[in-house]
Design a protein around this nucleic acid. Sequence first.
DNA 1: GGTATATGTAACTAAAATGGTTACGAAAAG
DNA 2: CTTTTCGTAACCATTTTAGTTACATATACC
Lengths: 137, 137
Amino acid sequence: MLSNSRYTVAIHILTLLAYNETEALTSEFIASSVNTNPVVIRRILASLRKAGIVSSQGGPGGGWCLAERPEQVTLRHIYRIMNPDALFPLHPAEPNQNCPVGRSIQELLTKRFVVAQRALEDSLGAASIADLVKEVS
Amino acid sequence: MLSNSRYTVAIHILTLLAYNETEALTSEFIASSVNTNPVVIRRILASLRKAGIVSSQGGPGGGWCLAERPEQVTLRHIYRIMNPDALFPLHPAEPNQNCPVGRSIQELLTKRFVVAQRALEDSLGAASIADLVKEVS
DNA sequence: GGTATATGTAACTAAAATGGTTACGAAAAG
DNA sequence: CTTTTCGTAACCATTTTAGTTACATATACC
């Protein structure tokens, strides 16, 4: 499974940026909210910036800002950025092609896995960062 | 994400058992189809047996059999056995409770994650081992 | 009984993933 | 220029993953 928390932290960061939309936030400030190291935050923000949904500015008064409207950024969008690989890994080594099951299993499974992952992502697409900000107490 | 292939291998094993329903299969035979070590297979089968969907028999002529009808064993059932933990891990450390976002983010996310994981599992529930066996060429 | 065959499981390993940390260069503000 | 902040490489400890060896246990069959 997703055995890393980068997706959760990415959503946390973006929610924080949207919640404080008027000012740039430093990686150190964000790290204190997430309760981790600023470098961990910068690494995740580097992925998000590559995808165009945040921007950064160096120097005093610098920091990080949302580059898209919070309404446009869905949990699905973030999911795909932080988890570009297929949700369900196939076999570590190619199955035995001389076995009828080994020969066909990967194709059969891929078909089901793609549909299931789409169902997951469709559900994630129902919520945006703006929705989360609205519910922050 | 799911960063292990045990779910895929578990489905492979069960499909193989259903495909050869008349005879018990040894972990060595199964391993040769999956292309791995028999102990890896026995470890996965131990989980499946604990859940009651396979049975084992030692000694000559022994091996592994399905303990349920292939129609009853869905990909969702197997998913839950092989992945008992939540699909989306939360933060490694508790977020800062003095920050409005840090204070509420885990509850907000859990709500969405539960729904998304249910969508995933519902999709997986649509296919059974019997369905896969039918499609093995 | 005795032998061959399988499971059951502990122990060990190599490789990779994960999250955290230090360090330091580059860029920007003032 | 000095301070601040990003950008990123390098390194580390811990955990996960898959594979392997080894050996005890149990069963079938002669």
